[in-house]
Design a protein around this nucleic acid. Structure first.
Length: 984
RNA sequence: GCCUCGAUGGCGGAAUUGGUAGACGCGCUGGAUUCAAAAUCCAGUUCUUUCGGGAGUGCGGGUUCGAUUCCCGCUCGAGGUACCA
């Protein structure tokens, strides 16, 4: 009976599936425990070794919790709407649904072979109509809600309507658009239906508005801020420009403060909380209005330092500010226009690249200081952003670096309002401990007191008020894509109308092609059956549109984060066709106890989902307003890329094409570079040829240009490279047609590749998938190995070289139970030492699981098995509990051993062995004896020996005397049970 | 620039409240077994050494009887963020 993992793993995976071992009930006497993984996007590349890392960790935790008596839910599903399937569809014409289905099949097969304890009966797929029905439903709920700042929660729009019709909107405190005019109850009643609707739209939690968006022309869609990396699209790296478009938005800003406050009560990693805090960007300050000299207009500014208002010496507007054209004087008009145009042309990327350059133009207009009445120059400058605050700043050069630099550059005045601070070199932006001067009633006050006083004065005199500002923007919710959730929206007289919840889902229509239409409409513009019949409540042909009973449907689709923003709640009751989640289910499961996933979702998914949770909590759908008590970010597994080095010749003219492609082995390449350096950079290839004596193998001597320019590293697929970094040349040649006839210059008959650690990615050809390891070593080995790589939360390079260690550990474990091919376990009493090993292991493993330190538990198991092997232990009293504690990590072998021990049930729900401290009590301790903190030797003493006796015994020892070499110790420190330290 | 995290043998990493630095595994070296190989087992493996010992956790200081661990100041690396008034 060998350890035949192939058979064992296949059998148990079948057993679990057939017996639905891991199906969780929605009611149980046991306490609940909900373990969640971030569900994967099923990409065509399949699962790579980075995916299972988090899944294995969560699976270990789930299995452990089952042993501890919990009713554990560990669901899995697919975030199956998304760009890659759509782009594939554009290229090939294949429907994204087909691609997605095929990819899901692959994923499922790959997941199944790793032996996860997922409850597949709860599976969700975001692209499945039965699922996105509820995404659409949440959208309609948001549309029908407004945010009441008075009660600090979302309420039904009907409550807003009744306030409007009884008292108008002047007393309503809502999170809403800023351009709302005040109206009375009578006004409201006299408004037309359309007028009322367009007013309500400004209050709804999801609303349509003309917003400046990040438009990616290449992808033909709008992108969210978190989908842009370094000024280009995250997917594909295409340029992004600013553009005004009519878009659906989500009023996430209504929840800014609650999203901030909620962080305090969840156990999430601090860096993640920090980035959300920064993203929300709360700052306290004041809104101040400045009159403009000679105009009936005001400039509103937001400032966090109203206490420095007496230091204002000019104002700066964003070039896009609406007042710019109005107030600019004739003399300055040309300069201003040129500047505004130049700024508009610069891309975000360019603006970012040179933040140091100072630029701006004087408008010729002046504002009036609200306190002193002094005239203040109004400038424009691109360091002021239109999108933040009011797009205008009051410049206090003595207190703000950017204002200081601006004033310095243009020779503007820099009045000092800080007592005893030198501002001749730089601005003073420290708040604490600096007293205000030259500031009328603020003189002598420190920051906090001055803030209070100035806000009081500003409010008293009526030119402003204290305000809290957030960096967080409302989230754009429209995408010009095909493969996403359609909106349950049709348009009547240009105003959006919700389709009633009972008619959902609105199913994604079929289209001829997946590109935007020729007149620039989104892909759904290609659909011919995409109109809403309000009589039959059905989607009908576009030809029937009469704008009376049949209307056009929305052409945008929802963004990627829509489907993932509440999927964890849907898992609780995923098969429910009547409700998003039933009361019973959600009351039982409440929230996620442990959520594991990558940190890249910090300001995307993890913020949006908290927003939706709070909203659905307000609506009474969910019982808690934070959905995940604890979150762990698993670290990224980096890949080890392989490089081949192409020798480059000539200056890229046509002749080069005729020449052969030559790859030089790594060390040779390095030698050649070294030689070339030694000879001077401009030597002819001929010279190199003689010296390196390589080129005779190639035909390049015949090439028209012999000058060579260097080496280009090219990614080679890691599957062509073995552990010794040798390239499989034939495989590489067959990889791409252009390499078919390539020449390889070898060293010692081999081609050695270069190695570099990079993010695991398809484009870097360094992706390793788990299938091969499962095939060669088994799922239990893969599970142990991924955990053994290092701390879960740390990023670490993938190297398979260590896998033999965990594999031979499993074989050793097997041999404890099966000796010489025979199952052989004795019922005799275990020895003290055997019990000690067992209980030491139980204790350590439980501590490790609590700390998510799975790598150290694997070592602990190895130590235990090594010790038990040395003790030749085959006692049932030891081996039974051992099988249980190892089950979360290596479930297949554990099940097999458990059944060999004579049990018919699955080991997965057996109680975890109880740790008993009595087995670890020692009667003596081997004390390290150190001198000045350095351990020199050890002495064994009984545990109950007193401090004094130990000191005496140590000092009397010959080794101590030898160490001291006649000196008298100054001090002796004895820590009973720990250490002895002699100073001298 | 700012925020966050990190730096320990040839490699991945361990050391949970300050108390024996390098657990466990890989790799490497030697040996056993074998006709041979695989597999398995045993011994060794931080550096240095005159074999007594000495040094050592990115660098420089500090606190302490004692620091990988705490404090101060740097260097380097990874990730995030982008003029936020």
């Amino acid at each position: 009976m060998e350890y035949n993992f192939r058979e064992i793993e296949k059998n148990w995976q079948k057993y679990w599936a057939e017996n639905q071992t891991f199906k969780a009930d929605n009611n149980s006497d046991k306490p609940k425990f909900y373990v969640l993984d971030m569900f994967p996007y099923p990409s065509g590349a399949g699962l790579h070794v980075g995916h299972p890392l988090g899944y294995i960790a969560s699976d270990i935790y789930s299995r452990y919790k089952r042993h501890k008596g919990f009713n554990v839910m560990h669901p899995q599903g697919y975030d199956s709407f998304g760009l890659p399937a759509e782009q594939y569809a554009i290229q090939t014409g294949q429907h994204p649904a087909i691609t997605t289905e095929a990819n899901i099949k692959t994923y499922r097969k790959q997941l199944d072979q790793i032996g996860f304890s997922f409850d597949w009966s709860r599976e969700v797929r975001t692209s499945d109509p039965s699922y996105y029905k509820w995404t659409q439903w949440i959208f309609t709920q948001l549309f029908n809600s407004w945010y009441n700042k008075e009660t600090d929660k979302a309420e039904d729009v009907s409550t807003l309507i009744s306030i409007f019709s009884s008292q108008g909107n002047s007393k309503v405190k809502a999170a809403c658009d800023e351009d709302i005019e005040v109206f009375t109850a009578d006004d409201w009643k006299n408004y037309s239906e359309e007028q009322q609707q367009s007013i309500l739209l400004k209050y709804r939690l999801t609303f349509l508005s003309e917003t400046e968006v990040n438009w990616c022309p290449e992808l033909g869609t709008v992108l969210a801020n978190d989908e842009i990396v370094n000024g280009v699209s995250e997917r594909g790296g295409h340029p992004v420009v600013r553009k005004k478009m009519m878009q659906w938005s989500m009023r996430i800003t209504a929840y800014a403060q609650r999203l901030l406050d909620g962080l305090a009560k969840i156990d999430w990693p601090q860096p993640l909380k920090d980035s959300q805090t920064y993203w929300i960007g709360r700052s306290e300050g004041a809104m101040v209005s400045f009159d403009i000299d000679g105009f009936d207009a005001k400039i509103d500014v937001f400032t966090t330092r109203p206490d420095t208002i007496f230091g204002v010496s000019f104002m700066t507007l964003a070039p896009e500010h609406e007042l710019v054209s109005k107030i600019t004087t004739a003399a300055q008009k040309t300069a201003i226009d040129t500047y505004v145009k130049a700024t508009a042309k610069r891309s975000e990327l360019e603006r970012m690249a040179d933040v140091k350059t100072i630029s701006g133009v004087f408008t010729g207009a002046y504002a009036k200081h609200p306190f002193t009445g002094e005239k203040i120059q109004i400038w424009i400058g691109d360091y002021v952003l239109a999108g933040y605050g009011t797009g205008a700043v009051m410049a206090v050069p003595c207190g703000d670096e950017r204002d200081y630099a601006f004033a310095n550059y243009f020779g503007l005045e820099i009045p000092n309002i800080f007592e005893g601070v030198d501002i001749s070199e730089e601005a003073c932006s420290t708040k604490e401990g600096v007293k205000i001067a030259n500031s009328d009633f603020l003189n002598g006050l420190t920051y906090k007191k001055a803030m209070k006083r100035i806000i009081f004065e500003i409010e008293q005199r009526g030119f402003g008020y204290g305000k809290i500002n957030y960096r967080l923007r409302d989230a754009v919710f429209s995408r010009q894509r095909y493969w996403g959730e359609p909106f349950p929206v049709y348009y009547k007289n240009g105003l959006p109308q919700m389709i009633d919840a009972k008619h959902l889902p609105i199913i994604l229509p079929e289209v001829e092609k997946y590109l935007p239409t020729e007149d620039g409409k989104p892909p759904l513009g290609n659909a011919t059956t995409w109109a809403w019949d309000t009589k039959t409540n059905k989607v009908v042909s576009n030809e029937l549109i009469n704008n009376e009973t049949i209307f056009p449907l929305e052409l945008n689709t929802m963004p990627g984060w829509a489907g993932s923003s509440s999927y964890f709640n849907r898992y609780m009751d995923s098969q429910n066709t009547d409700e998003f989640v039933s009361k019973e289910a959600v009351e039982y499961w409440q929230d996620v106890d442990l959520y594991i996933g990558g940190s890249e979702h910090a300001t995307g998914h993890l913020l949006y989902s908290r927003f939706w949770q709070k909203f659905l909590f307000d609506k009474g759908v969910l019982p808690v307003d934070e959905y995940a008590k604890k979150l762990i970010n698993q670290g990224m597994i980096t890949g080890t890329s392989a490089f081949v080095y192409r020798w480059e010749f000539g200056e890229g003219n046509g002749n080069d094409l005729a020449r052969k492609t030559i790859f030089v082995s790594k060390n040779l390449m390095e030698n050649i570079i070294k030689e070339r350096k030694a000879m001077g950079a401009n030597k002819k290839t001929e010279v190199i040829k003689e010296n390196v004596n390589l080129l005779s193998a190639c035909e390049i001597a015949n090439a028209p240009k012999n000058e060579w320019t260097g080496f280009t590293p090219i990614h080679a697929d890691v599957s062509f490279v073995n552990a010794a970094d040798e390239l499989d040349i034939e495989a590489f040649k067959n990889w791409r047609p252009e390499y078919k006839d390539a020449e390889f210059i070898l060293e010692d008959g081999k081609y050695i590749v270069g190695r570099e650690v990079e993010k695991m990615s398809k484009s870097k050809y360094n992706v390793v998938n788990p299938d091969q390891i499962c095939e060669e070593y088994g799922a239990d080995s893969l599970r142990l190995f991924e955990m053994f790589l290092g701390p879960l939360e740390q990023s670490k390079p993938w190297k398979t070289s260590g896998i033999s260690g965990v594999y031979s550990f499993l074989k050793k474990l097997w041999k404890l139970y099966i000796v010489n091919g025979e199952f052989s376990v004795s019922d005799s009493e275990p020895t003290k030492e055997e019990l000690k090993t067992l209980h030491k292991t139980i204790k350590k493993v439980e501590e490790d699981i609590a700390n998510f330190s799975f790598n150290t538990s694997v070592s602990t198991f190895m130590i235990a098995v090594n010790e038990l092997t040395a003790l030749k232990c085959n006692k049932r009293a030891i081996l039974e509990p051992l099988a249980i504690i190892i089950e979360p990590y290596a479930p297949h072998i554990a099940e097999e051993l458990w059944s060999k021990l004579g049990y018919k049930n699955s080991v997965s729900t057996v109680d975890f062995p109880i740790f008993e401290a009595k087995h670890l009590i020692e009667s003596s301790k081997e004390y390290p004896i150190s001198f000045n903190g350095k351990m020199r030797f050890k002495l064994e003493f009984p545990m109950d020996m007193s401090k004094e006796e130990i000191e005496k015994a140590v000092l009397a020892h010959e080794k101590t005397q030898a160490q001291l070499q006649g000196r008298t110790p100054k001090k002796v420190i004895v820590v009973p049970g720990k250490i002895v330290n002699i100073v001298g």
